[in-house]
Amino acid sequence: MTKENLGELILNSENQLYATAKIILGNDEDCADAISETIVKAFEKRETLKKENYAKTWLIRILINECYSLLRRQKKYVSMETTEIPERKQPEKTDYSELYQAVSELKDELKLPVILYYAEDFSIREIAEILEITEGAVQKRLARARGKLKKAFEHKEVFV
C-alpha cells in the first residue's frame, strides 16, 4: 500500500477511528493519543498489509490494539500519593442518548461488535477479522448484546 493510499484511507476513516476509540477509551485526549499512535504504526507497517481490500479492517485492528495498550499502560501508573484509586471518567448522561449510554455499559466483548456492526457498518466477516474471532462468535456476541439491551429497555418507552 502506498503512503498516498494509506493517507486517503485514514482521512476517509477518521469518523470510524474516533467512534471506535471513544467507545473503548471514553476520553477525548486518550482517543487522540490512540489514533495518533495508530497512524504512526500504520505508516510504519504498511508493507505488512497483504491485501488492500482489507486495509480498513487492518487499520481498525491496529486502533483497537492501541486502545487496549493505552488502557494497560494507564493501569500501571497509579499515583502513590493518594489512597484512592482514580475512577475512569464516565461520560455524562446528558451528553449521550440512553441507547448510547446502555451500549457503553456493555462489556467490551459485546460493545465492540455492536459498535462495529451498527455504527460503523462493518460486515460480520470484517468484524470477525478485526476482533480475530469466528463469524459465529460475532453473531453470538451481537445476539447477546441485543438481548441485554432489550432487557435494559423493557420497562422504558424509549423507542416509542
Rank of each mutant, 00 (worst) to 15 (best):
N5Q: 12
G7T: 00
N12V: 07
S13Q: 04
E14L: 11
N15M: 15
Q16M: 15
L17I: 04
L17V: 02
Y18M: 08
A19N: 15
A21L: 04
K22Q: 10
I24H: 07
L25D: 01
D28P: 01
D28K: 09
D28E: 09
E29I: 10
C31Y: 01
C31A: 09
A32E: 13
A32K: 10
D33C: 05
A34G: 04
S36V: 08
K41R: 11
F43Q: 01
E44G: 05
E44H: 07
L49I: 01
K50H: 04
K50L: 08
K50T: 03
K51F: 07
N53Q: 12
N53L: 10
Y54L: 15
Y54V: 11
T57F: 02
W58N: 00
W58P: 01
I60V: 07
R61C: 06
R61A: 09
L63K: 05
I64Y: 09
I64A: 04
C67Q: 04
C67I: 03
L71I: 10
L71D: 03
R72W: 08
R73C: 09
R73M: 09
Q74P: 10
K76H: 10
K76F: 13
V78E: 15
M80W: 14
M80G: 13
R88D: 12
K89V: 14
D95I: 12
Y96P: 00
E98P: 03
L99F: 11
Y100Q: 15
V103I: 05
E105P: 01
E105K: 08
L106P: 00
L110N: 06
K111W: 07
K111D: 00
I115M: 14
I115C: 09
L116K: 02
Y117M: 03
F122Q: 01
I124G: 01
E126A: 11
E126D: 09
I130G: 02
I133G: 06
A137V: 06
A137H: 08
V138E: 06
K140E: 13
L142Y: 05
K148N: 10
K148M: 14
K148T: 10
K151R: 06
A152Q: 09
A152S: 12
F153C: 06
E157T: 13
F159Q: 08
F159I: 06
